[in-house]
Amino acid sequence: MILSELLQLPVLDAVGTRIGVVTDVRFALDHDSGDAHMLGVLIGRRSRATFLGYERKTETAPALIARFLRWRARGSFLVLLDDVRSIEPDGVRLRTDYRRYSPELP
């Protein structure tokens, strides 16, 4: 699969309610091997919500732009790969007991 097939897909919970779209995909880069393992997907209310990624970084300048973009990206969250039940061409389905994590980068 290629990344752009996953981006923008609608995300549904276990009973089929739409809870957002895939805005980004998070990876962990192994220090030694350099391999990039998928950790989870970032979900936002709309695909453009993560524009410039201010909600995930510690950068807060210029303050007005940062605050505005964080406000636009409110309600975004991270779901770990284990909480993804299936990926279909028309959407990503999550497990019943999926957990929402903060989208902030460590």
């Binding site: 410039l52 950068e59 300048a61 210029p62 303050a63 732009i65």
Partner: peptide, 19 residues
């Protein structure tokens, strides 16, 4: 935006007045 990004600029990011 990039002039404020520490990944690119390190300690040479914009000051408040410039922003």
């Amino acid at each position: 935006i990039v002039a404020n990004d520490r990944d690119y600029m390190g300690d040479k990011v914009n000051g408040r007045v410039t922003n």
